[in-house]
Amino acid sequence: MKILEVEHVTKSFRKKKVIDGISFSVGEGKVVGFVGPNGAGKTTTLKLVTNILIPDSGSIHIAGFNILKEREKALANVAGVIENPALYMELSGYDNLRFIQRAYGKSKSDMEQVIEMIGLGHAMRQKTGRYSLGMKQRLGLGMALLADPKFLILDEPTNGLDASGIIELRALICRKAKEGTTVLLSSHILSEVDRIADEVVFIKDGKIVEESAMPPLRKKYLVKAGDAKGVLGQLASIRDAEAVLVNDTTVEFRVGAGDFAKAMRLVCQEEYQVQDIQQEGTQLEHVYQDIFREDA
């Protein structure tokens, strides 16, 4: 079941085509990364998906509802932060959340939960105009979460967040995904997408260049061990892992997020004398470089 289906969508501004017949889909319950360089059309696409902009041609369905013809039904499934948090700067954080709470008919306890989740309890009575960028981002995210959507769209959600904010956000997205929420995550921080996303859609010059073409993303690790061959032997028992011996003491391997814990269990045994494990780049970065070689 697809929560989002985009088919042959185009959009021009002043005769300049910024989205050129894109088609892609997002499966229910997935975390999908939406990746592309600046000006590729990521935010415009997300605005088209949420009916903030109207496409010149093509169709967009959310949860089976046409966004143009059944706008209200389609949008009932979506919430998100597009481009930057849509906040009313002259209202307090509490009033901003209260608006969403009333609009979606949520309870006050739902709101309290969200306030706790975004960690802004101390600043709820302040006007959001006085918030830092990170606080605004948290509040925007809170407003999206309060709607409790089936489909969550996040456009550069880590903008302005400090390290702990990024970690919390990552955990939050993973938790939402586990609860069955589909997440479309647009970000230029590839390592973030790489850690969270199940699939990735690449966009360049208003065109989709890759859609989930890669296998489940696997990270590359370097293991230094006294018995590198033994490590290699253990990793070979993991079906989707890919391991090579670099030298007598180093093994390079790639493994998906789901198998990482298993790999660690097998490798980190006393007999193999493991001295160091390092993550080295991601497969997503390599794919990105391949696709956007000119831009790189």
């Binding site: 949420t50 949008l75 597009i82 849509a86 700067m89 969403i100």
Partner: peptide
Amino acid sequence: ESGSIKAKLLLPVS
């Protein structure tokens, strides 16, 4: 100008 209109446009209302 401020972008806050998106909060309303994302609501499931006409």
